[in-house]
Design a protein around this nucleic acid. Sequence first.
DNA 1: CCTACCGATCGGTAGG
DNA 2: CCTACCGATCGGTAGG
Lengths: 197, 197
Amino acid sequence: MIILKDLSRSRRQIIIEEAAVLFNDKGYSSTSMKDIANSIGVKAASLYNHIESKQEILSVLLLFIANKFQEGIEDIDKSSYSFNEKLKEIIKMHIRVSIENRHITALITQDWKHLEEPSLTEFKTIRTNYQTVLKKILSNGMESGEFKITHLDITLNVILSSLRWIYNTEIYDNISNVGLAELERTILEIVFSGIEE
Amino acid sequence: MIILKDLSRSRRQIIIEEAAVLFNDKGYSSTSMKDIANSIGVKAASLYNHIESKQEILSVLLLFIANKFQEGIEDIDKSSYSFNEKLKEIIKMHIRVSIENRHITALITQDWKHLEEPSLTEFKTIRTNYQTVLKKILSNGMESGEFKITHLDITLNVILSSLRWIYNTEIYDNISNVGLAELERTILEIVFSGIEE
DNA sequence: CCTACCGATCGGTAGG
DNA sequence: CCTACCGATCGGTAGG
């Protein structure tokens, strides 16, 4: 019973997930409530029986994915891995979560700007938190001699940015035949030892 | 005479450059013609004496920056550098053009989706071209033993993506004290030899 | 879940 | 460069 119920998405869930796909395609502002309604075969006014507003949909999506990343990094940070191993695990987690939630993760790059308060502050707090944990690991690993880093902020941004393409719909199709393990291995190789022979 | 004229931006240029800043802030769809007009102190209807449409502004901006990158990479590709040196020069050029045209470059990540035909096809053609040239250099450098690359497409995407943060307004302020030469050196170090000691 | 409808705002035009 | 105005579309509500 419970299993069956968990397997079937609620009307609300369907709306929110369809919205994520559309936001991903055209952006939050260019997606109308009518677009969302059309994609699930109802009239726009009917959506409001399940959600409060367009803004609520955006907020639910972005806080969900932000918390997902945050929980992932905290679990790894709590472990007894070396800094080197922690970074490896974080990158692998980041890749996995990105791929499993492609359409939602993509909203992190731009559509978060359309969040209104108090969700905007909440989202930014979680994001800052994530970067602070990662920065601390890089910094500690530098001091322990595991990493060679000349500029912490630049390195942080290069690493995070280098992962910000996996969930891209256009690109994903080109590499979807690669497999998760191989994708992880290839990216880790570049980040850890570069491409120069 | 000519010098003075070149130094003063035309009304049209002012509109287009102000629009780039606003598009960068809120996205193309959320920026109204009224927003653009307000930012330069006129009424929205007055803009149409200088530009054809909102869409024309977007098209001018994106084709300008796409051509800038394209010319940059072609000049380097024509040179007699090694593949290793070519890649270094391309990354440096990419960083320089990104920073010199911050607000316009940022549009490349998302707002190009709002281009209409025929500009959309033109933009995508130039972008594909750029990636093809870079991919060829990576491929040749791999065969010549200059690069160690296991997946061409993944490597291409990781490198390009790792540069896609420099023009970000939020981040830029944090690293604006670093200086261009040092920024280039740090990023090249990561891409070429990674962060592992 | 629908029809009917709301005020607000959109990009853009006419005409001076 | 402005005022005045256009039809279309927006997110959302009322009421059944």
